[in-house]
């Protein structure tokens, strides 16, 4: 360790430890926020259940998985109906936020998010296709992933200028590809009339259909995609120095971009497959974490996962208990103005 004897004017010696001093309390704070989101998310609704009873029900539900005991009354509501919805919210919120943070880092563009590059609208089109054609349940995320990868490839090739992806071109290409894909999705919805209600709710972002089966199908996508992105945190930090500098430090920049895009597409496709388009979470959460906790991706990505998961569960709670009805509407209605406020406040972002 660095000794203070080495640096008698020890004013600055607090600095190197600052990261380790502050990371854990902040992580703990966000974990508490996430836990509270889970408790309130499962407790509140048409039947209100006290937090203590929720924790008890969660425990009995977990135990019943091993003992095979029958769940009764409120335990059924908590374990079978509300908890999968909440867990899905955590998975989706975390995936979108980590992907947003990674996209912003890898393209060094504060406006990048899964939606801007056409990944999410591609996923939506793929998923809608699978729903309308009545493909097997587990194929929905696969179809979402395939179309997502195709659409992000189109966006990147449109935006590409030599080896670089200039922000304006990236945004323009993403907007165009996204619009085309959304139009195609709408056309599909209008054809598949008998499933129109499900598909329409889907395009507005809805956690309401989530059951344990959906959660278990999405989990590997979220874990794989986010896991890879978290491992790349230090390489992403290095990339912030600039492409040439990162390459001079031994980071193969093109390979890094490709892997981030694929990993983020996997996580986004999983997130979008069953719950649809949920806007602004992936854009805003990384900015909030960056403002509050710093820009290093080793902090940014994991904390974005925690905050994104918690915020989406709270947004869904608001959607269920208010006339806004769907979580995608809530995040867009609240997220849009919040982002504008952020833009005005931080001229630099």
């Amino acid at each position: 360790m660095r000794s203070d004897a080495q640096q008698p004017e020890a004013l600055t010696s607090a600095a190197p430890g600052e990261k380790s001093r502050w990371v854990w309390p902040r992580t703990f704070l966000l974990l508490l926020l996430l836990l509270s989101a889970i408790v309130f998310g499962t407790g509140l609704g048409s039947v209100n259940i006290a937090p203590g009873d929720v924790l008890g029900a969660l425990w009995r539900g977990l135990a019943s998985q091993f003992t095979g005991a029958e769940l009764v009354s409120n335990d059924v509501i908590v374990w079978q109906i509300r908890l999968p919805r909440v867990v899905m919210g955590v998975l989706v919120g975390a995936s979108l936020s980590v992907c947003g943070g990674a996209f912003q880092g890898v393209f060094r563009n504060p406006l990048a998010d899964p939606y801007l590059l056409g990944v999410a609208s591609g996923s939506a089109l793929g998923a809608t296709l699978a729903i309308v054609l009545d493909w097997p349940h587990a194929l929905i995320p696969v179809s979402a992933l395939v179309v997502a990868l195709l659409s992000v490839a189109v966006t990147l090739s449109l935006a590409r200028e030599g080896r670089r992806f200039p922000p304006t071109r990236l945004i323009l290409a993403g907007v165009v590809v996204g619009s085309v894909l959304s139009a195609a999705t709408t056309a599909l919805i209008l054809r598949g009339e008998d499933r129109a209600r499900q598909v329409l709710a889907y395009t507005l972002g809805d956690l309401g259909f989530s059951g344990w089966r959906d959660v278990l199908t999405v989990l590997p996508y979220a874990a794989l995609g986010c896991g890879v992105l978290l491992l790349l945190a230090r390489a992403l930090d290095t990339l912030q120095l600039g492409d040439l500098t990162a390459r001079s430090l031994g980071v193969p920049v093109e390979r890094l971009r490709l892997i981030v895009v694929i990993a983020a597409s996997v996580a986004t496709a999983g997130a979008v497959a069953y719950v649809g388009i949920i806007g602004f979470i992936g854009l805003i959460v990384p900015h909030m974490v960056r403002l509050a906790f710093g820009a290093s991706h080793r902090i940014l990505l994991p904390l974005s996962a925690l905050l994104g998961g918690a915020l989406l569960v709270y947004a869904d709670l608001l959607a269920r208990t208010s006339p806004l009805s769907q979580v995608g509407i809530v995040t867009t209605l609240l997220g849009g103005p919040f982002f504008l406020w952020l833009l005005r406040r931080e001229k630099e972002i």
């Binding site: 190197p16 990261k19 930090d237 290095t238 912030q240 430090l249 031994g250 403002l291």
Partner: peptide, 20 residues
């Protein structure tokens, strides 16, 4: 050098240790 504004000076310099 592209330095992200929210990064601390020491963390930036530490990135130079990753070479290779």
């Amino acid at each position: 050098e592209g330095l992200s504004d929210a990064t601390k000076v020491r963390d930036v310099v530490a990135l130079g240790r990753g070479a290779g």
